[in-house]
Simulated assay, not measured.
Amino acid sequence: MRVTVLAGGVGGSRFLKGVRAALRDGEPSEITAVVNTGDDMWLAGLRIAPDLDTIAYALAGVNDEERGWGRAGETMRVSEELAAFGVGWPWFTLGDLDLGTHIARTAFLHDGLPLSEATRRITARWPLGAGAASIELLPATDDEVETHVVTDDGELHFEEWWTRLRAAAPARAFVQTGVEASRPAPGVLEAIRDADVVLLAPSNPVVSIGTILGIPGIRDAVATTPAPVIGVAGIIGGAVVRGMADACLSAIGVATDAAAVARHYGPRSAGGLLDGWLVDEVDAASAAGLEADGIRTRALPLRMRDDASSVAIVRAALGLAASGSTRG
């Protein structure tokens, strides 16, 4: 089975661990993660790719599970030295092990390699797959497409708005700089086109999944793939599971509601992206309306508390994809 997942950082990493575990003992499977690069940036002369690294560390089992980002067992000596020199962002702390990844990536890029090849070389260090399931991480694009946030006080990089301001300054718009001239990274369109199932992880629908879909060609590939497209809500009972996606959704006029996000993606039968959608049990009442809109919907517990709960969610998504025609 070939499964392609569009994913952001923390939520995407937990979901991908569930995908890997769900497919581990079955037939040989290929999992391709198309990862958001809108959070990427240059900092202290290094190219930082937060979502790619968060997912790679989690799949490799070397992530800091308590913080949800970075490497386990980190020390901060280099960041402390940089702060003493007034270099970088003191509120965006990078551990020494994490900096090793960023230095390696920057060296690969300076050698003329594209981000996708740099990512392949970085992830080759760890066995990301397990059992019968192999995993490949692909950046959505090799081009520099960074998400900026427009606020009343001006425009700033998404990471500054998210990490330093904690999304407290109301976002008026999100701008993906350089997106018009960007292209999908090698293998991205093929992974979507040739998949048996395409899954939209419960990642931020605006700045993670939305940024991926904004790369020219990717939205069309998802809309036209022969594979069923199944999404998983990252909102339960009107509240985001993790992060501050509600601040992002309000900026684009979408309610913080699982059904509203499904309608934002839209049914493929009406020119949208979704064949199926998973909601939490507390939002089960929305299923009938979504079904009437052409989005097949199932309700089940969606909190990824551990590997078992993540596997159950993935199996439900794969089951919905396989349960007859999902194309409206």
Rank of each mutant, 00 (worst) to 15 (best):
A251G: 11
R47D: 13
P226W: 03
P301A: 01
R268K: 09
T177G: 04
V207M: 07
A322E: 10
A118W: 04
L249Y: 10
G70R: 12
D307K: 01
G238H: 03
S79Y: 05
A270M: 05
L46M: 14
A247M: 14
S286G: 10
A221F: 06
T75E: 10
W89Q: 13
G178R: 08
L113S: 09
V222P: 13
R166T: 10
D196L: 02
W42R: 15
S13C: 00
Y57G: 03
A288T: 06
V279K: 05
G243N: 02
R315Q: 12
A124E: 13
V3Y: 01
G271W: 11
S325C: 11
R298Q: 07
G45W: 15
C248I: 10
A260N: 03
A83P: 01
G238S: 02
Y57L: 07
M1V: 12
R166C: 07
G9C: 03
A284C: 09
G26E: 05
L200C: 09
E81L: 15
T93P: 10
A130W: 11
E30L: 07
G154S: 10
W161G: 00
D53F: 07
A185W: 04
R193G: 00
Y57T: 02
M304R: 05
F158V: 02
F92M: 11
G12F: 05
V5W: 06
I236Y: 02
G11D: 00
G210W: 08
G210N: 13
N36A: 06
R219T: 14
E80F: 08
A44W: 14
E144L: 14
G129D: 09
A227F: 08
T75F: 05
S309R: 00
G61V: 08
E281C: 10
A56N: 05
T93W: 12
D283G: 08
D39Q: 07
G100Y: 08
D153K: 06
V261Y: 00
Q176T: 10
F15D: 01
R67G: 00
R47V: 12
R268C: 08
D98V: 11
I135V: 15
A316I: 09
D194I: 00
T225D: 06
S269G: 15
P184G: 08
E144V: 15
E65L: 06
R24Q: 08
A312P: 05
G234F: 00
D196E: 06
M76A: 03
F15A: 01
E160T: 11
S182Q: 06
V254Q: 03
G112K: 15
W161M: 00
G154M: 08
A130M: 10
E159D: 06
L318Q: 12
R305I: 03
T211L: 05
A251P: 07
R164H: 14
L199G: 05
E66K: 07
R47K: 15
A130F: 09
R77G: 09
A258Y: 02
L249P: 11
V5H: 07
S250W: 13
L290Y: 08
A292L: 11
L82W: 13
V311C: 02
A227M: 08
A201E: 03
V282M: 05
